[in-house]
């Protein structure tokens, strides 16, 4: 299991557009990818589940998966401003 903690870089937080982009990227992997915020878990392949985390700009989100490449890609997306 690989984990990486990153800070949300999109000013709107992990809302509509950023959540959709992350879910799309996560959906390309076979392994399950989880996002964790304050003990709450969400499937990174579901933009609805990501949005229910309510992760605001600047929040620290942990990415977990068996696939290290997946963790690296999703973590780098979370850190970016995806709403730009």
């Amino acid at each position: 299991m690989t984990t990486q903690t990153v800070v949300v870089g999109s000013p709107v937080g992990l809302h509509a557009r950023p959540a959709a982009l992350i879910a799309k990227a996560a959906g390309a992997y076979d392994e399950e990818i989880l996002l964790v915020l304050d003990g709450e878990e969400a499937d990174a392949a579901s933009s609805l589940m990501i949005m229910t985390l309510g992760a605001d700009f600047g929040a620290s989100v942990t990415v977990e998966s068996e696939n290290a490449d997946a963790v690296a890609e999703i973590a780098s997306l979370i850190a970016k401003d995806l709403d730009a």
Partner: peptide
């Protein structure tokens, strides 16, 4: 497009 993606959402 966003609404279509939401309809097919994995979590839902």
């Amino acid at each position: 497009e966003a609404t279509a993606a939401l309809a097919a959402d994995k979590g839902l």
